[in-house]
Computed example of a mutant assay.
Amino acid sequence: MLSRIGNSLFWLGRYIERAEHIARYTKVQYVSSLDAPYAQGREFVLESILDMIGISYQYYASYSQLTDEDVLFFVTLDENNPLSIHSTIGYIRENARGARDSISLELWEAINRFYHSMNNYTVVKLHNEGIHEFSQKVEENSSVLKGCIDNTLMRNEAWMLICLGIHMERAIQVARILITKVKDIEKIDPAKLGGPVENYQWTTLLKGAESFDMNKRHYKANPNRRNSLEFLMFNQAFPKSIAYNLDVVHKNIQQIAFHDEKGSNSLDFMAGKLAGQFKYTTIEETEKQVTEFLTSTLDKINQMANKLLEKHLIY
């Protein structure tokens, strides 16, 4: 496979997953401020959305203050923001076009429907329908795309590269969500920690990662710091946990082989070491330094992604 096509397939997977997570997190955080205004102020929520996506600096370069309309537009429809959902959907189609001969007609048509339906979204429509409706459409279309990937593609290198992108991006996004919410909770008045206000933050964390229901079923208890962090970091059976996704990343790298590169500097070694770290680390070892642990994890995933691009997918 040409490096150019491999690059497009890898980024196709990443952008599909990125659009979905940004949309869901924005929806959950913003709607929660309407449902429970005393649990978290509107400014608190808007800052959280910008921090999770990593666009606070870019936002303040264009806007002087936080407002609902400006933040939601910047995150969703702003063509000048390369990390907006609108821009990300454009990247999905662009990369699909670059690998058109390697994907199915069904997937290509689903991507086109997604692109054109969201490309016709206007600021007025966003205002009238609300962020919940907009984000729901992004999530639903992302699910359709992933259904086409699973059900219409041969299990070959093209499929594995898309999956590699999806699971690597999912690990990154879940880590970013965890870091952001832990920092959000650190801003809460210490007198309110351990009570309903803090517990509500763990609930929004889990809903932002589409894991609230499974967490409650698994622990048979309400969300708290310990079970929320453990579930999204180390649960080997839950498909949104970092541990699960790093294991899938390692397996995909092994299957693709990447010219059978060996040694401690190989992608296989890097992915296996990181997946093993999450397999054999407990919440007790990391809970007190969770932000530092997750930041280090993000750095390692990004190093792995950069190595993959530089050595195998550059063109």
Results as ranks from 00 to 15, higher is better:
Asn306Arg: 11
Gly272Asp: 04
Met118Ser: 06
Ala237Asp: 14
Arg42Val: 06
Gln58Cys: 00
Ala257Arg: 13
Gly165Trp: 07
Ser296Val: 12
Phe134Gln: 04
Leu2Ala: 05
Gly41Asp: 12
Glu287Thr: 08
Ser135Tyr: 02
Ser135Lys: 06
Phe278Gly: 03
Tyr91Val: 01
Asn222Phe: 11
Glu157Gln: 15
Phe73Thr: 07
His21Asn: 14
Ile314Thr: 04
Val71Tyr: 05
Leu145Tyr: 10
Ser48Lys: 11
Arg217Tyr: 07
Thr204Asp: 04
Ser8Lys: 09
Lys192Tyr: 13
Trp108Ile: 01
Gly41Asn: 12
Trp108Cys: 00
Tyr244Met: 01
Ile188Arg: 08
Ile185Gln: 08
Asn199Gln: 06
Leu246Phe: 13
Tyr315Thr: 03
Ala221Met: 11
Arg226Cys: 00
His127Gly: 00
Gln201Arg: 13
Phe258Tyr: 13
Phe258Ala: 08
Ile242Gly: 08
Pro37Ser: 07
Ser32Cys: 10
Lys27Met: 14
Arg217Ile: 10
Glu292Asn: 07
Glu285Leu: 07
Glu310His: 05
Glu210Tyr: 04
Gly90Thr: 08
Ile162Cys: 07
Phe269Leu: 05
Ile253Lys: 08
Asn265Leu: 04
Tyr280Asp: 14
Arg4Gln: 05
Ala237Lys: 15
Phe44Cys: 04
His132Gly: 05
Phe234Trp: 10
Met214Pro: 00
Leu50Gln: 02
Gly13Ser: 07
Glu129Phe: 05
Arg226Leu: 00
Ala175Asp: 09
Glu285His: 08
Tyr57Gln: 14
Arg170Ala: 07
Val138Arg: 09
Ile301Phe: 12
Ala23Gly: 02
Leu229Val: 03
Ala209Gln: 06
Glu198Met: 09
Ser266Phe: 12
Glu43Ile: 04
Glu94His: 08
Glu230Asn: 11
Ser32Ala: 15
Ile49Ala: 13
Arg93Gly: 12
Lys181Arg: 13
Tyr200Asn: 13
Leu309His: 13
Phe73Arg: 14
Asp189Tyr: 07
Leu164Phe: 04
Ser228Thr: 02
Tyr280Thr: 15
Arg24Asn: 02
Arg217Asp: 04
Ala96Gly: 11
Leu83Pro: 00
Ser33Pro: 10
Arg97Ser: 05
Ile22Trp: 12
Ala243Met: 03
Lys307Val: 09
Gly194His: 11
Pro196Ser: 13
Asn128Phe: 02
Gly130Tyr: 03
Asp68Ile: 14
Gly208Asn: 12
Leu77Asn: 03
Ala39Arg: 05
Ala39Thr: 06
Gln236Gly: 01
Met52Leu: 10
Thr152Arg: 06
Ala36His: 12
Thr297Phe: 13
Phe269Cys: 05
Arg155Thr: 11
Phe74Tyr: 15
Glu285Trp: 02
Ala237Trp: 06
Gln58Ala: 10
Val75Tyr: 10
Asn227Phe: 04
Ala61Leu: 13
Gln289Glu: 12
Ile242Met: 10
Ser104Asn: 09
Glu157His: 14
Gly276Ile: 02
Lys146Asp: 01
Asn227Ala: 06
Gln136Cys: 01
Leu229Glu: 00
Glu140Ile: 05
Arg42Asn: 03
Ala36Glu: 06
Gln40Lys: 15
Glu106Cys: 01
Glu169Pro: 06
His218Trp: 06
Cys148Ser: 02
Asp268Pro: 00
Ala243Asp: 07
Lys181Pro: 01
Ser104Ile: 11
Leu298Trp: 08
Glu129Met: 06
Glu198Gln: 15
Phe234Gly: 03
Arg176Thr: 04
Leu46Arg: 04
His250Phe: 10
Phe269Pro: 03
Gln303Lys: 15
Arg4Ser: 12
Ile55Trp: 03
Ile256Cys: 09
